[in-house]
């Protein structure tokens, strides 16, 4: 008995060293596969984020090598900067348009394409086109759509007897115009999400509702909409993160007299950093944007785990 146990433990020792060796070899293999990705990711995403936070405590024009440590001075300046609050407010409008215009419009598009309408394929392409254009091209195209003298939008208004509007030069018309364009460009993105979600709703649910005597509208509110709630929630939270990434459209379409009324965090940060050369202050704005995004990630995680728990219970 005793001898057998000894042999066993010796074997175990042996197996353990072999295992350990294999493990360290395995570690090396894993590392060699992931090295490039981790290197690029660290160099161009992780390290810059940390640097941004460090720079945010300095006063620095980006050209001179010496920079002055100023503690939280940039942060206190930021919180008393009216342009920051204006930008933050505009970012909220952006989120609002995403949630209350783009998402419903995307849902409508998906419902149209999901019906037995003729010419689905063509409609699908037409609906999706705006999302494929580069944002700069979209911005420039709409600058001419909104042109005060020759633009189709004002001409259409004129034909109804409404006077021309200098869309992009006024406040709040400039912001409204840009938000319309944003809805135009991004509604198709939500359309894709909803199209996939609609296909995923089991046919039996509709049949059961039909047997209970539900009409189409009731079916929509009692079957379709509830099935889409998870995707509605996650799209809405993602709209916040998306708003923090917005830059191109506002950069291209602003700057013709509407002042800071069209500033968003992205353009505000760009202006301070690369136009006014205030790298420290720009970093502070960027750091704030990161913090807001981080909060969104946490919210998404919490929602996700709540949903998983619910699913686990039922």
């Amino acid at each position: 008995m005793k001898a057998a146990a000894e042999v066993n433990s010796m074997n175990l020792l042996d197996i353990n060293t072999v295992k350990r060796k294999e493990k360290s070899k395995q570690k090396l293999v894993i590392l060699s596969f992931m090295f490039m990705a981790l290197f690029v990711y660290t160099l161009f995403i992780l390290y810059p984020i940390i640097s941004t936070f460090i720079y945010s405590f300095y006063d620095w024009n980006g050209i001179e090598t010496n920079r002055a440590f100023v503690g939280f001075a940039n942060y206190s300046e930021l919180f008393s900067d009216p342009t920051f609050w204006q930008s933050l407010t505009n970012n909220f409008y952006l989120v609002g348009v995403s949630v209350f215009v783009q998402i419903p419009l995307g849902l409508m598009m998906a419902l149209v394409l999901n019906s037995n309408i003729k010419g689905q394929k063509l409609l699908n392409v037409i609906f999706f086109l705006p999302y494929l254009m580069s944002t700069v091209a979209v911005g420039l195209l709409w600058v001419f759509m909104f042109d005060p003298t020759n633009g189709p939008i004002n001409k259409t208004l004129n034909s109804f007897g409404i006077e021309s509007v200098t869309w992009l030069a006024g406040s709040p018309s400039a912001l409204i115009a840009i938000l319309i364009v944003m809805a135009w460009q991004f509604a198709p993105f939500y359309m894709i999400l909803f199209k996939a979600a609609l296909v995923g709703i089991p046919e039996e649910l509709y049949e059961a509702a039909g047997m209970d005597g539900a009409n189409d509208i009731q079916k929509f509110f009692y079957v379709t909409l509830p099935s889409l709630i998870p995707i509605l929630i996650s799209s809405s939270v993602l709209a916040i993160v998306g708003s923090l990434k917005t830059f191109d459209l506002f950069y291209v379409m602003s700057g013709s007299g509407a002042g800071t009324s069209t500033a968003i965090l992205g353009t505000f940060m760009y202006e301070e950093t690369f136009v006014n050369f205030r790298m420290g202050y720009g970093s502070t704005i960027a750091a704030m944007m990161f913090i807001i995004a981080l909060i969104c990630v946490v919210i998404i995680q919490v929602i996700d785990s709540i949903q998983k728990r619910k699913r686990g219970l039922s």
């Binding site: 810059p48 640097s51 980006g62 944007m289 990161f290 995004a293 981080l294 969104c296």
Partner: peptide
């Protein structure tokens, strides 16, 4: 989820 702006200046 990272806003590109958070990396612009260091890059």
């Amino acid at each position: 989820m990272v806003p590109i702006h958070a990396t612009l200046i260091p890059i």
